[in-house]
Amino acid sequence: MDEATLAEVRILKHLSGPEYPPRRFHRADQRHLGGAFQDNRVVPFEGIQVMTLEEPQQKLLWNLIKLGLEYLPSAALAAKVAEIELHWRDTYFCWIGGRGAGDAFYYKIYSPVTMIEFDHHTGVFLNNKEPLPFHIHTLVRTPNGNDYGKELLRHYQNRTHS
């Protein structure tokens, strides 16, 4: 990325420290905004709109999205990818941390229908005091009311109890 684009994508230079705004870092979740007990949390869009990136950069983001969602069965994956495509214009990408080989980092791909977070963590039970590339946490959440399928469950319950 050129320096101007990188300046928009990289929202913080370091994985922790005094530059962090309140509520942006949690001891257990670290940089994750969609971690444990954060069901349906309102998370701000950060970074850059992916539509403003060059086509090769957008293709790389699609690779990250598919990597993050590859646990889904093929039909569910295809449906989720189609849903993300519908909201591509409203999808954002941000980065925190290093950019070199072996550096620890965090990224978030966030649209109205999917939030994927990747983070290198410090140790809780491990002894690494700094985030290291061998200690990875990832999250995939569905924002806007259907986290953990709650909206689907509500529809089902309304139908069966009506």
Rank of each mutant, 00 (worst) to 15 (best):
60 L>Y: 07
20 Y>P: 00
20 Y>N: 10
86 L>F: 07
104 A>H: 01
37 F>A: 15
64 L>S: 09
91 T>N: 00
45 F>C: 06
26 H>S: 08
72 L>C: 02
62 W>P: 01
82 A>C: 02
113 V>Q: 10
102 G>I: 08
104 A>K: 02
31 R>V: 04
41 R>Y: 13
88 W>I: 02
85 E>T: 10
104 A>D: 03
22 P>G: 06
70 E>S: 15
79 A>Q: 12
77 L>T: 00
77 L>R: 03
73 P>N: 13
76 A>T: 03
81 V>W: 03
28 A>N: 10
99 R>K: 13
30 Q>F: 12
87 H>W: 10
74 S>E: 15
67 L>E: 13
45 F>H: 14
111 S>V: 01
54 E>G: 08
68 G>P: 05
59 K>Q: 14
54 E>Q: 15
80 K>A: 13
37 F>K: 15
28 A>I: 14
29 D>G: 03
110 Y>M: 15
41 R>P: 09
46 E>W: 04
109 I>P: 01
109 I>G: 11
107 Y>P: 11
106 Y>W: 02
42 V>M: 13
47 G>W: 01
112 P>K: 02
39 D>Q: 14
33 L>G: 14
83 E>D: 14
65 I>Q: 05
116 I>A: 05
29 D>C: 07
21 P>F: 13
25 F>V: 03
111 S>W: 02
63 N>A: 09
57 Q>H: 11
83 E>H: 03
52 T>P: 00
57 Q>W: 11
87 H>Q: 12
51 M>C: 15
35 G>K: 01
67 L>Y: 06
49 Q>V: 12
95 W>Q: 04
76 A>N: 09
110 Y>P: 00
114 T>E: 04
82 A>Y: 00
88 W>H: 08
63 N>V: 06
44 P>R: 10
110 Y>K: 13
81 V>N: 04
58 Q>P: 01
41 R>H: 13
38 Q>H: 07
23 R>S: 14
31 R>N: 12
75 A>I: 01
89 R>Y: 06
56 P>R: 08
115 M>N: 01
84 I>M: 05
58 Q>A: 07
52 T>H: 12
21 P>M: 09
89 R>I: 06
109 I>C: 09
116 I>H: 05
84 I>Q: 05
47 G>C: 10
81 V>F: 05
45 F>S: 08
80 K>W: 05
31 R>L: 15
99 R>Y: 03
56 P>W: 04
35 G>S: 01
24 R>M: 09
101 A>F: 06
89 R>Q: 14
97 G>D: 03
98 G>K: 11
111 S>Y: 05
63 N>Q: 10
73 P>W: 05
80 K>G: 00
26 H>G: 05
77 L>Q: 04
31 R>E: 09
72 L>V: 04
51 M>V: 15
98 G>C: 11
57 Q>V: 07
20 Y>R: 15
38 Q>C: 14
47 G>V: 08
83 E>Y: 00
43 V>H: 10
92 Y>T: 06
109 I>D: 07
76 A>D: 15
83 E>W: 02
33 L>P: 00
34 G>R: 08
92 Y>L: 03
41 R>G: 04
27 R>D: 08
100 G>F: 01
48 I>R: 07
23 R>N: 11
61 L>S: 03
104 A>I: 02
55 E>V: 15
